[in-house]
Design a protein around this nucleic acid. Structure first.
Length: 223
DNA sequence: ATCCCGAGGG
DNA sequence: CCCTCTGGAT
């Protein structure tokens, strides 16, 4: 996408979401990290439903270790991949206690060494907790960058590097959330709602979906 | 490339 | 039923 179009692209996303922020709920850096780990291949709403009760009493690595893997599983049973996530969160909490003074490190290499934390999760934590200009490429951002032509790439890392180069100020800090929110609610995986998309004229995606036919009488049509 | 694996939507 | 949801480890 051309430079001028990119500025216009972000400007409109910024108008669409004046106050971009995570929809994941947390009470401190530690619970944010846990929430992001739990959010892999899961919806934010589903993670929040499980963590609301959990974080009310368990908000430090020490309390999480005390809760234990089985205790944690009871809280997150409704989230996909809960067995491996429970194991990782306990191990991650032990690592924070042993190696980081029970604090969440603001360093990407240190974050990525934690069990269950990869590049994408580390990028989210650095952006949300430490206000770093990182570009976490999740399923939404990977899809939008390729579909629109904003920053096409074959792998998430390739897209991340292109995004980093292509995204100018003052959009760098919040680019991640603007793209996520647009992808979640408008540029959806299955049925992108191009008829109400504010950047449709800047987008290269061809098979635009049509606006659903208006229901004349409020009842379904019959055969 | 494959496995982990639940809820919600279509 | 199938697909998707802020992936990571092997």
């Amino acid at each position: 996408m051309k430079k001028g179009d990119i500025v216009e692209f972000y400007s409109r996303l910024a108008e669409e979401n004046p106050h971009p922020e995570t929809e994941l709920e947390s009470v401190n850096d530690y619970t944010l990290l846990v929430a992001v780990v739990l959010s892999a291949q899961a919806t934010d709403a589903g993670v929040n439903r499980a963590t609301r009760a959990l974080f009310a009493t368990v908000d430090t690595p020490e309390k999480m270790v005390a809760l234990g893997e089985d205790g944690l599983k009871q809280h997150i049973k409704t989230i996909g991949l809960f067995n491996s996530k429970a194991k990782n969160v306990i191990a991650l909490s032990q690592a924070l206690i042993a190696e980081h003074g029970s604090q969440v490190p603001a360093d990407r290499d240190a974050l990525e060494k934690l069990p269950g934390v990869g590049r994408k999760t580390a990028n989210v934590v650095m952006n949300v907790a430490f206000q770093q200009e990182t570009f976490a490429v999740d399923t939404h951002i990977f899809r939008i960058c390729n579909r629109t032509g904003l920053a096409p790439g074959k792998t998430p890392l390739a897209v991340e590097k292109k995004l980093d180069k292509a995204t100018p100020q003052p959009f760098r800090l919040h680019a991640h959330h603007w793209l996520i929110l647009h992808g979640r609610y408008v540029c959806k995986a299955r049925k992108p709602e191009c008829w109400r998309c504010i950047v449709a004229d800047l987008c290269r995606y061809k098979p635009k979906t049509a606006e659903p036919a208006a229901k004349a009488s409020g009842k379904k049509q019959n055969a």
